[in-house]
């Protein structure tokens, strides 16, 4: 990013952040060595996206676009979900992907069991409709509910350290949310297997309660308390 800033200041004008650097420029801004040149694009496997592309005029342009090989985790199956894949990698420890995947599958199984039980115990139809039985939806919703909007950054001014509230970037916020969730699930105190604990935490977070949600709210409260120092972000 620093390099990018340097480049833009050198050019004498600023490039809007949504305008991506193109391949030609990327090739000049040297970073860690990569096997494939910068003009290689990420593969597109989604049929809907492809169909949209085919209808538009852009499909013709793709003919000259080289594509990266599909990564080993990618496939076009209906069970494939990008977020699920990412979450699996957060669960993984020491490269044991197979184990991480099994754990997540068990978690989904537990979630399904709990929710179905609730579903069958419910008496009216309106109650039943409110109960979400799809574990993937619960996972996504739970993580979204736990995502913080603000965080605090330590800034030292005049010899004392202040906790300055700053907005969190999208990626970082998701990371924090997943990290807290897994920390709660891996709690050392209780001797419960990860899938069981994680499933409970996820359902709690999905319903807007539980430890992880509280953690997020605590952080927001801290930010609120330190709002007087917010100006240290830029001064």
């Amino acid at each position: 990013m620093a390099l990018f800033k340097q480049a833009t200041t050198f050019l004498g004008f600023s490039i809007p952040p949504h305008k991506k650097l193109t391949a030609a420029v990327k090739s000049v801004l040297s970073c860690r060595t990569a096997y494939f040149p910068a003009e290689f694009q990420k593969p597109i496997t989604d049929q809907d996206v492809l169909k949209e592309l085919e209808d538009s005029s852009e499909f013709e342009n793709l003919k000259f676009q080289p594509f990266l090989p599909a990564p080993i985790s990618l496939n076009s199956s209906v069970f494939y979900d990008e977020f699920k894949e990412r979450f699996t990698r957060y669960v993984m420890k020491g490269g044991q992907k197979k184990l991480a995947r099994e754990l997540l599958e068990k978690t989904f199984y537990e979630i399904k069991k709990i929710q179905l039980k609730k579903y069958y115990e419910a008496e009216t139809d309106s109650e039943r409709n409110e109960i979400e039985c799809n574990p993937l939806v619960i996972l996504k919703n739970a993580i979204e509910n736990c995502t913080p909007m603000l965080t605090v950054k330590k800034v030292s001014r005049g010899g004392s350290v202040y906790q300055v509230p700053v907005p969190v970037q999208e990626k970082k916020a998701e990371y924090l949310s997943i990290k807290w969730m897994l920390e709660a699930a891996r709690d050392k105190g209780s001797r419960v297997h990860l899938p069981i604990k994680l499933s409970k935490e996820l359902i709690d977070a999905h319903n807007g309660e539980g430890r992880v949600i509280k953690k997020k709210q605590d952080l927001h409260k801290l930010c609120e308390a330190n709002r007087a120092y917010a100006h240290f972000r830029w001064s």
Binding site: F40, K63, L68
Partner: peptide
């Protein structure tokens, strides 16, 4: 075949 190429199936992963 072109769609396969777009899906990254026909690029040799030479890493």
């Amino acid at each position: 075949a072109e769609k396969m190429r777009i899906a990254g199936l026909l690029t040799r992963d030479a890493r």
